[in-house]
Amino acid sequence: MTELKVFSLNVWGIPYISKDKSLRMEALAEALKSKDYDIVCLQEIWDTNDYELIYSKIKSRMPYKYYYYSGLLGSGLCTFSKWPIVETFYYKFPLNGYVHKIHHGDWFAGKGVALAKLEVNGKIINVFNTHLHAQYCQENDEYLSHRLSQAYEAGQLVRLGSEGSALTLFLGDFNSKPSDICSKVLRTIPGLQDAFIHYENDSDYGTNETTRNSYTPPEVLRRNPFGGRLDYILFKSNSQHEAKSLKYGFALPDRIPNCDVSYSDHEAIEATIELKEKATKTPHQHEDIQEVLHHSYNICDNGLREVANKLRHLKISFLVLVALLAACVLVQIDKDHHFSSFIWFILYFPQFFLLAVICFYYVLSWIEFQSLCGFQNSLAVLGTPLPT
């Protein structure tokens, strides 16, 4: 029998933007140094100096580490382990926001799913770590189809990659509450169980925008003081083993000692997972996969309609600009001697610039359309019928 104590936290480590980052990273490193975890998974470690700082504090207890480089700003994901990391893999999400939403920033991060294979007492343990696209507006979630595509691809990767491993762990910030479709997909597709032990008052265990956290804006607390449980520790065993969650809870106090700030804008969570061999195979009970797939298919279909409408508007804008350019050329042929070259430059430059912008966004939108088509077809293969 093996017991693994695991830890997960979105550390909110955006350089020059995240508040009190240096103070919080130092405090987190000291806190982890005093603990005895087998596995630590972190999200939003955008600065590798913070990664190295944490490792310098915990390397005597957790000598194995891996940072996943990806995209323009990095993946933000890293894993520390007491046990040897024998293999790693990283899958970058093809759909991850929009380039023109600079203030959101997700597009510039190479978000994806990180895998570290560990050897624990002669057994292979798969540890997955991820951070799905953020939800910036609950009333109008323009990124739902992107986040759902990410959840599906992550779930498929876990399902296909868990063969041969005694235990699979999936930790991270899913940016989805337990009842949201993205969380359901991540549990249902690969057959994962939630380490969260259902206490009498589940609302006390929100991990983001709660009264526990010093960085929660007052106006957010007025709307919902309980926040939401967005961070997870999921697990599954293979047919020769059985696993269960022995303990789950917050891993750190609500404030850094002798300070009035929290360790992050998310709450750190920890769980103790027991793994042991079993004599007979017993099937796990999971949510209705067909219902989850059908809901996902409909969301994807709505996303495809929105992108198709965007493509149509871009085509119309392109044709209007081409017609306007043609008209300018005809005018220039007739009136060229009346105006200087500078005037013609001023006339043409905005049109060519807009044409370039339209073409650029058309290409990005077409890539989005193709990715959503692939996502929808993959859902159909798993059991959701294509519309006739």
Score class of each variant (00 low, 15 high):
residue 326 A to V: 00
residue 64 Y to G: 10
residue 334 D to L: 11
residue 167 L to V: 02
residue 25 M to E: 05
residue 336 D to F: 13
residue 124 I to R: 15
residue 248 Y to D: 05
residue 101 K to R: 14
residue 1 M to N: 13
residue 327 A to G: 03
residue 68 Y to S: 01
residue 212 R to G: 01
residue 336 D to A: 09
residue 44 E to P: 05
residue 304 L to T: 07
residue 202 D to C: 01
residue 150 Q to W: 12
residue 360 F to R: 01
residue 55 Y to H: 11
residue 377 N to F: 10
residue 316 I to G: 00
residue 235 F to Y: 12
residue 160 L to A: 09
residue 238 N to G: 13
residue 265 D to C: 01
residue 74 G to A: 11
residue 380 A to D: 14
residue 19 K to P: 07
residue 228 G to R: 09
residue 86 V to Q: 14
residue 147 R to C: 02
residue 101 K to D: 14
residue 42 L to F: 13
residue 246 L to C: 11
residue 305 R to D: 10
residue 343 I to D: 05
residue 371 S to N: 12
residue 159 R to I: 00
residue 55 Y to I: 00
residue 40 V to R: 07
residue 214 S to W: 02
residue 386 L to V: 12
residue 68 Y to E: 03
residue 236 K to P: 11
residue 171 L to C: 09
residue 283 P to I: 06
residue 143 Y to D: 13
residue 85 I to G: 06
residue 90 Y to T: 07
residue 23 L to R: 01
residue 341 S to P: 04
residue 370 Q to D: 15
residue 342 F to Q: 12
residue 103 H to P: 05
residue 244 K to F: 12
residue 113 V to H: 07
residue 226 F to A: 15
residue 258 N to T: 05
residue 294 H to D: 13
residue 195 A to S: 15
residue 152 Y to H: 05
residue 242 E to N: 14
residue 45 I to T: 09
residue 130 T to R: 10
residue 60 S to N: 05
residue 23 L to E: 03
residue 150 Q to D: 13
residue 77 L to C: 03
residue 2 T to R: 12
residue 123 K to R: 15
residue 19 K to S: 08
residue 256 I to N: 03
residue 133 H to Q: 04
residue 342 F to N: 06
residue 238 N to E: 09
residue 88 T to P: 13
residue 32 L to R: 06
residue 365 S to V: 06
residue 213 N to G: 08
residue 102 I to M: 00
residue 237 S to R: 05
residue 310 K to F: 08
residue 131 H to E: 00
residue 357 V to D: 06
residue 264 S to R: 00
residue 38 D to F: 12
residue 226 F to W: 07
residue 26 E to P: 01
residue 29 A to Q: 08
residue 367 I to V: 13
residue 294 H to N: 09
residue 240 Q to F: 14
residue 123 K to N: 15
residue 64 Y to L: 03
residue 256 I to W: 03
residue 326 A to M: 04
residue 284 H to W: 05
residue 171 L to K: 04
residue 147 R to P: 06
residue 198 H to W: 04
